[in-house]
C-alpha cells in the first residue's frame, strides 16, 4: 500500500548523512596530507561517504521502482491524498500496519545487505594494507642488506 515510504525516508536521512560525511572527509584528508607522509595508505581506503552512497543508491532505486509498482496497482495517485488507502480510516490503519511491518523490514534488509558489503570491503582493505606494509618492510630489509654488503 505504501511500504516504499519507509525505505524512502531512510534514503533521505542517509543522503544527508553522506553529504555531511563527504564534507568532513575533505577537510580531514587535507589536514593529514600536511602533517605526515603516511597518507598513501590512508588514501587507498574507500571513503565512508562513498560507502554510504551505495546504501543511498539501493534505497532510492528500490523506493522509486516500488513507488512505480504502487502507481501501477492504483495505490498511489497523482491527486490528494496521493495514497488511495489514506482516503478512509480502515484502509489507513491497514496501510500503517503494512508500513510498520513490510516497509520496516525492507529498510532493515537493504541496510543489512549494505552492512555485509562494508564487512567484506573492510576485510579486503585490511588485507591490502597488510600486504603493502609487508612489502615495505621487505624493501627496507633488502636495502639494509645491500648497504651492509657494500660497507
Amino acid at each position: 500500500m505504501a511500504c516504499f515510504i519507509v525505505p524512502a525516508a531512510e534514503a533521505v536521512i542517509t543522503t544527508i548523512a553522506a553529504r555531511a560525511a563527504k564534507s568532513k572527509e575533505a577537510s580531514s584528508e587535507s589536514a593529514k596530507a600536511r602533517l605526515d607522509g603516511a597518507e598513501p595508505l590512508e588514501a587507498e581506503k574507500i571513503p565512508f561517504s562513498r560507502k554510504l552512497g551505495w546504501l543511498n543508491k539501493m534505497l532510492w532505486g528500490g523506493s522509486v521502482l516500488l513507488a512505480f509498482e504502487h502507481v501501477w496497482h492504483g495505490e498511489v495517485v497523482p491527486w490528494f491524498p496521493f495514497l488511495t488507502a489514506a482516503s478512509n480510516p480502515a484502509d489507513a490503519a491497514e496501510m500503517l500496519h503494512e508500513m510498520a511491518t513490510v516497509g520496516v523490514l525492507m529498510a532493515v534488509l537493504v541496510t543489512a545487505v549494505w552492512a555485509g558489503m562494508l564487512a567484506v570491503c573492510s576485510v579486503i582493505e585490511k588485507k591490502a594494507q597488510k600486504k603493502e606494509q609487508k612489502e615495505q618492510i621487505e624493501q627496507k630489509e633488502a636495502l639494509k642488506k645491500a648497504l651492509s654488503a657494500e660497507g
Partner: peptide, 21 residues
C-alpha cells in the same frame, strides 16, 4: 553501471520482502 546495479539490487531486496509476506 554500478548505479544501475545498486538500484536493481535495492528493488530486488524490497520485492523479496514483499514476496516473503
Amino acid at each position: 553501471v554500478g548505479v544501475l546495479c545498486l538500484m536493481y539490487w535495492g528493488a530486488s531486496l524490497m520485492w523479496l520482502v514483499d514476496a516473503v509476506f
